[in-house]
Computed example of a mutant assay.
Amino acid sequence: MTATSLPYVKMNGAGNDFIILRVDAPGFDLSPDTVRRLCGRDTGPGCDQLIVIEPPTNPGETAFMRVWNADGGKVETCGNALRCVGWLLLEASGQESAVIGTLGGPTVARRAEGTRIEVDMGTPRLAWHQIPLAEEMDTRGIELQVGPVEAPVIHTPGAVSMGNPHVVFFTDRLDDDFVRGAGSLIEHHPLFPEGVNVGFAHVLSPDHIRLRVWERGAGLTLACGTGACAALVAAHRRGLTGRSATLTLEGGALTIRWDEASDHVFMTGPVAFDGTGTVTI
């Protein structure tokens, strides 16, 4: 196979960093080995996720965004990447909004104050088969725990799909070792046939949550946009917060709002430009 060089843009959203490529035809694909090489901090430019912007595949879309995690696996969507891709599309077009297609469904990105971007993440999917779970459960608090049966360390997380599967534990244990250990244990639990992103949320007040996320296929990252959306939805369903809150993550703060009228979740947060380069495919 002939090697191809492609220019990339390196960006981050609240510390969650991406290599972003742009191609001229839909259906672009990469081998898991290539993705791991490019995402590796020692073997490529290094990133949490690799993003490819393709031409739109459906009427009304501005572009299509394809996402791979650092382990080489293709995933449905990524909230922080949607903000970065949205910013690129809006800067290129001069428009105030863009419709971005993803494997998890279309998303609308809009300009907010400064360099912040608001993304309409759509309606949260709350039925057990939409997460998906391997068996029927009440997704406000599913039957899952870590630790001894009689004294679990964490238990009964909420389950939400924001186009990708999440569980959210409510705990004040947010240290690296705990999040890494519990997250890696739960990510491939048999209850989740497609794997799962694992959130650890400490509710500080009805409008403020401290959050850490173990991302499926990426591990411990500085921020997770869909994870922040899932945490707010799960917290509100438990009566722990209102319908909007500031989510403080390691890489920065995101504002999440679950609109009652539309049932859509809106995420607003920063984007940052880290540089450019060329990769060989």
Rank of each mutant, 00 (worst) to 15 (best):
L6S: 03
Y8G: 02
Y8D: 03
K10N: 03
G13L: 01
G13H: 05
N16G: 12
I19F: 03
L21A: 12
R22C: 13
D24E: 15
D24G: 15
G27Y: 04
F28C: 02
D29R: 14
P32R: 06
P32Y: 05
P32M: 10
T34G: 00
V35T: 03
P45V: 00
G46A: 06
V52F: 07
I53H: 08
E54G: 12
P55M: 10
P56D: 09
E61I: 05
E61H: 11
T62Q: 04
T62E: 03
R66S: 02
R66K: 08
W68N: 02
D71A: 07
G72V: 05
K74N: 09
C78S: 15
L82P: 02
V85W: 00
L88K: 01
L90D: 08
L90S: 10
E91L: 13
S93A: 14
V99W: 03
I100R: 04
G105N: 05
R110A: 08
T115H: 10
I117W: 01
V119Q: 00
D120A: 02
P132Q: 09
A134C: 07
E136L: 05
M137P: 02
I142Y: 01
V149Y: 01
P152R: 02
V153Y: 07
V153L: 15
I154P: 07
G158S: 07
V160E: 08
T171E: 07
D172R: 13
R173E: 13
F178P: 11
H188T: 06
L191W: 00
N197Q: 13
V198Y: 02
G199P: 06
G199I: 08
V203P: 13
L211M: 06
E215H: 11
E215Q: 14
A223L: 14
A230H: 08
H236Q: 13
A245N: 08
E250M: 14
W258K: 01
D263I: 04
F266S: 08
F266R: 14
G269V: 07
A272H: 03
G275P: 10
T278C: 06
V279M: 03
